[in-house]
Nucleic acid binder design. Structure first.
Lengths: 348, 348
DNA sequence: CGTTAGCACTCGATGCCTATGACTGCTAAT
DNA sequence: ATTAGCAGTCATAGGCATCGAGTGCTAACG
């Protein structure tokens, strides 16, 4: 293997350049300061002098993988550099067995409740990757009715509670056009329960012939609740680790910190991931594509759950200077764990 | 009324001192820079010269109501100064009618769902006070059973869903010691539903004679869910406005910002308020008492709901340099609104 | 031709100095 | 009791020299 021979399908980078790029990325990720040729040489055993490294770095800069903050500073990876690192140089990202066990153990110890698991998942992601973590609740695709309850409150207000197959519960209040007592409400509920058991809202509507006005209202509400629509439960998001990630030096600057906090509070970017299949981990570096504001942030996200049945999203949000290996490994492992849980619990 | 005659029961401060203290607090709150004697004089029509104001300020400083960041700077209120301001000088804190209407209007426009109202309450608080807002879900004291559902999933796991009077829903998974099919589960659920309707968990246990092992497990879980215990739904907290409040100049310093973000993510201070009755607004300045870390933060919090039945907490968290008048007025108004909602919906 | 030693150069960071000016605190006069 | 006047204080900002990490270039080397 000669020096300028390239691996895989990367005609433009020599092996040595790859090695140097990888080392720069790794060093910068762990030290947070621009890395110079000399420092790189001292910490790692490359067979060459600092001058050679400087030359290679200059080439890597010309190719767009590295930059300089200013003339007399060391090199810093560009987004393209990180991207190359993630795609080709990162190697094995699987979590060590010991950590996998630890995580699995924590899940087994938690109380048997979805919300606890999601909170736990967020905590694990945050601590393991040292970044902000987000987990959304799994969303059932075609929820089938399990049980419906109509509860009268005062002032012509009725509380509707629906339990769907798999245990999703939704509730909503409903105003009555004319008063009804609890007995009448229970009767309607019983009727819908018997007709609609294990049906989705559309089938239920088709099957319920000649509904009263009130029954029609209830059905409309059911449709609305199951279609999802715009009321995607933005609150059903579990978060952790914001404090820790704000410690990172890149968030000294006011603007960067704000962009991060904003994204964390309004994680619209999680919708990005809906297009990808369950099980694949997506890496967005420096707010590629849209997400201009997140220029100094990266995210590693994945969907979890059972495709076509119930899926959610989870991931981490941190500086571009993120430990991508750990992040990808942890996100993948936790997503797989959560998928198993969903498959155990929701699919019956 | 002579100049050194005091109002109410404040023997130590003359009227003029009160006026000056009030002006200093107000000016500092709106400008965020230490206020000097001259600036104070120019903006307000006091009948005296700057030298007199300086003398009075020196007295106020000696009494502990004001400080100096350094010799050549203007005055800044101390926590004691803010406290005095809030207790005695603040005057009318009721929101103007127009704002009340606007807020009420927004509540009427929202979808009829408790979670939406809480999110809305947080949003209104955050925007109106320009600080971070927190709202916790109302917690029912002695929840009575409305409906219980047992749903079999694979792998000897049962999902238990309970609907309580008033619409609170809790769910939890339960492991079976030996397999049971859905029919058997439904039978148990039906039995508990018929016996326990409108009972609290303790009464239900008393009434259910000779329970099977599985029934006992279900009852234990019910007790655990209703006693609240340590699993106070820390996730059932609605938040808003963190981004905005982080813009305030006091959070330029890393440490202060972190303390705030921490408190916002883990709002243990909301437990502080459980001792106070519904309807009273509590003001904690500069992390008085415990909350040492929150030395540059203040909070204005209140409980809402129906005493002894279902109550939650809400409030705002911001810099000590907080518009206390608006904060108290808004928190009170929103808390009252939420109390009305709870009373309409939960009490039947 | 790739590699290397050596060296001039760049530029942020640091420290020191000197205004500048906003305020105070004091004193003496009113 | 109040006020005008003034000396004194101290954070802030700008100017300037120093330092040093790190680069880019050139010439020499194998």
């Amino acid at each position: 293997m000669t020096a300028n021979q390239s691996v895989i399908t990367t005609p433009e980078l020599t092996l040595r350049q790859q090695k140097i790029l990888g080392l720069v990325v790794k060093t910068y990720i762990s030290t947070a300061t621009p890395v110079g040729s000399k420092a790189l040489l001292e910490a790692n055993d490359l067979g060459v002098s600092s001058a050679t490294i400087r030359n290679e770095m200059a080439v890597l800069e010309e190719l767009g993988y590295l930059t300089h903050p200013h003339t007399s500073a060391g090199r810093v990876p560009t987004d393209k550099g990180y991207r190359y690192f993630v795609e080709r140089l990162i190697g094995d990202v699987e979590l060590p067995q010991a950590e996998q066990n630890m995580i699995r153990h924590q899940f087994h110890q938690a109380k048997l409740e979805m919300s606890q698991w999601m909170q736990l998942a967020a905590a694990i992601l945050a601590r393991s990757v040292r970044s902000a973590a987000l987990v959304t609740a799994p969303k059932v695709e075609q929820p089938r009715l399990r049980h419906l309850e109509l509860i009268s409150t005062q002032s012509q207000l009725v509380l509707l509670i629906v339990v769907f197959q798999g245990g999703t519960v939704r509730q909503r209040y409903l105003t009555l056009k004319e008063p009804m007592d609890q007995a009448a409400l229970s009767q309607v509920a019983a009727k819908i329960n018997s007709i609609g058991y294990e049906l989705d809202a559309a089938s239920l509507r088709a099957k319920l012939t000649d509904p009263t006005d009130f029954e029609r209202d209830v059905l409309d509400l059911l449709m609305e609740l199951t279609s999802g629509g715009d009321d995607v439960p933005i609150n059903e998001v579990y978060r952790d680790g914001l404090t820790e990630v704000l410690q990172e030096p890149e968030f000294n600057k006011r603007g960067e910190a704000n962009a991060l906090v904003n994204a964390f509070e309004q994680p619209t970017f999680l919708n990005e991931v809906v297009s990808s299949p369950v099980g694949t981990v997506q890496v967005v570096i420096g707010g590629e594509g849209r997400w201009r504001e997140l220029s100094s942030c990266s995210m590693v996200i994945a969907r979890y759950g059972v495709e076509g049945f119930a899926t959610g999203a989870l991931g981490v949000l941190g500086p571009t200077r993120m430990p991508y290996g750990r992040a990808i490994g942890t996100v993948r492992y936790v997503a797989d764990l959560m998928s198993d849980l969903v498959s155990d619990l929701y699919v019956d």
